[in-house]
Design a protein around this nucleic acid. Structure first.
Length: 272
DNA sequence: GTAGACTAACGGTTTACTTCA
DNA sequence: GTTGAAGTAAACCGTTAGTCT
């Protein structure tokens, strides 16, 4: 950065050292210099470049305390910052001239302004993520409740079915489409079959934490197959689009990689 | 009088670029 | 022409300290 070269400025009668950085100057040789003068005099940092150059004023100013920029100076700097938050040397010089500031001051102002902007931006991003997370959580609650409802429906319907057809309804192993048809034909909830297909994961993990991490994904993924249930109609358990769906799909894929698949019937036999 | 927020300015570090051997 | 060291300038970061409410 400001390579901080120390030079002796002959224009200063009192032999104060100036620190040169970026071709600019800083009129104090360090923080201790700030205490030399008590802050009884109130005047703008530099009202104009001419005043700065003027030796008498300059000498008077040397041990000056920190001064706030005037509203006009800040306004102009802000406008300039809005146009472009990086400062090319030429623009810096122009601004400095216009504002009656040192180029170094303009550079510092931009630096601090970028830092403030970044902080604000981080706060915004945080709020955005938080609201996204809250909404996801609320979606999950909804889906979870709906899934519970559908599960109890299926339990009820399956019991009814078993009572009516006690023969080997449950014996066929790889007949998910057929069973799906069968069950959905017996109820209004065609989605129930698709939803419950992933049931074991929900059963296993539904009490897991909502917080980020593998467990969360798996917990959400547990309701995962029920992306469809998320929609009000809950018809087909597929492709609702949106972030939630993506997350659930990803969790589902991950889950499939990690765990042995359990067929619907196998699971239903255990659970129901 | 004081605590806390804001902000001008600093020093250190990193990075990109230029110059030169 | 290429390469590595040295120099320079600017950005970023964390911090300090004056100002203001």
């Amino acid at each position: 950065m400001d390579s901080g070269r120390l030079i002796f400025d002959p224009s200063c009668g009192d032999g104060n050292m100036l620190i040169l950085g970026n071709g600019g100057y800083v009129f104090r040789g360090g923080r201790s210099a700030m205490n030399i003068e008590e802050g009884s005099k109130r005047r703008p940092f530099f009202t104009s470049p001419d005043e700065f150059i003027e030796e008498e004023y300059y000498d008077e100013q040397l041990p000056e305390k920190k001064r706030r920029l005037t509203p006009e100076q800040v306004h102009l700097l802000e406008r300039s910052f809005e146009m472009e938050n990086k400062l090319e040397p030429e623009r810096k010089t122009q601004l400095a001239k216009k504002l009656g500031l040192q180029p170094r001051q303009v550079a510092v102002w931009f630096q601090n302004r970028r830092a403030r902007w970044k902080t604000k931006q981080l706060e915004k991003d945080f709020d955005l993520l938080k609201s996204s997370y809250d909404s996801l959580l609320s979606d999950y609650d909804t889906v979870s409740k709906e899934n519970d409802l559908l599960r109890s429906k299926i339990t009820m319907l399956t019991e009814n079915l078993n009572e009516k057809e006690p023969t080997n309804v449950m014996t066929e192993e790889k007949a998910v489409p057929a069973t799906g048809d069968r069950i959905s034909s017996g109820s209004s909830g065609g989605s129930a079959v698709m939803d419950v297909e992933e049931g074991p994961q929900l059963m296993a993990d539904s009490d897991e934490s909502y917080f980020p991490g593998d467990h969360e994904l798996r917990a959400i993924g547990g309701g995962g197959g029920d992306c469809g249930a998320h929609s009000e109609e809950g018809d087909d358990g597929s492709d609702n689009g949106g972030y939630l769906t993506d997350v659930l799909a990803a969790a589902e894929r991950r889950h499939q990689e990690e765990e042995v698949q359990v067929g619907w019937w196998e699971w239903s036999e255990k659970v129901l």
